[in-house]
């Protein structure tokens, strides 16, 4: 992901230029990095560490705690809720349909704990969009769209 103008470290510095160099800004900073790169690699952790002047181990400890930052490979994640209420409404079918549609493509399917959409189970979430009372057909089209 190196650009012509410099290394990842420089790119991250530019990305975080308006974020104050404070420990309390680590979570917003990590969000910005994830929205840009879709994953947090050791290299990116190093860049955030340098940029905010927080030790590498501390940044790693925080970044690795959160499931929404856990996306090795950096594919576009689509989350299928497989918690109790969605499970009762057929989240397994939804997940399988999504997985087949995503195979060998740029999208990855992840299971999610309760998405807080139990009144519209089964639910899925593409980061931007919540799918309510999702059908296998619908999730397949979302996976295809997300991959374009």
């Amino acid at each position: 992901m190196d650009s012509e103008n410099g290394t990842v470290s420089d790119a991250v510095k530019v990305l975080l230029h308006d974020i104050p160099r404070e420990r309390g800004q680590l979570l917003p900073a990590l969000w910005r990095v994830v929205e840009q790169y879709r994953e947090i690699t050791p290299e990116l952790i190093g860049a955030v560490s340098e940029s905010l002047n927080i030790p590498y181990a501390e940044v790693y400890g925080v970044a690795s705690f959160y499931s929404l930052f856990d996306n090795p490979g950096g594919k576009m994640p689509v989350y299928v809720c497989t918690d109790v209420m969605c499970m009762l409404q057929g989240s397994e079918n939804l997940k399988h349909a999504a997985e087949s549609a995503a195979e060998n493509g740029p999208v990855t399917i992840r299971e999610s704990a309760c998405l807080g959409q139990c009144d519209y189970a089964p639910a899925a979430w593409s980061g931007a969009r919540v799918l309510r009372r999702a059908t296998p057909e619908e999730i397949v089209s979302v996976v295809k769209e997300a991959g374009q």
Binding site: D83, V84, M85, A113, C114, G116, Q117, C118, D119
Partner: peptide, 12 residues
């Protein structure tokens, strides 16, 4: 941070 299973009242 409404994340309790089956809880979605704060969202609504």
């Amino acid at each position: 941070d409404e994340s309790e299973l089956g809880t979605f009242k704060d969202r609504v």
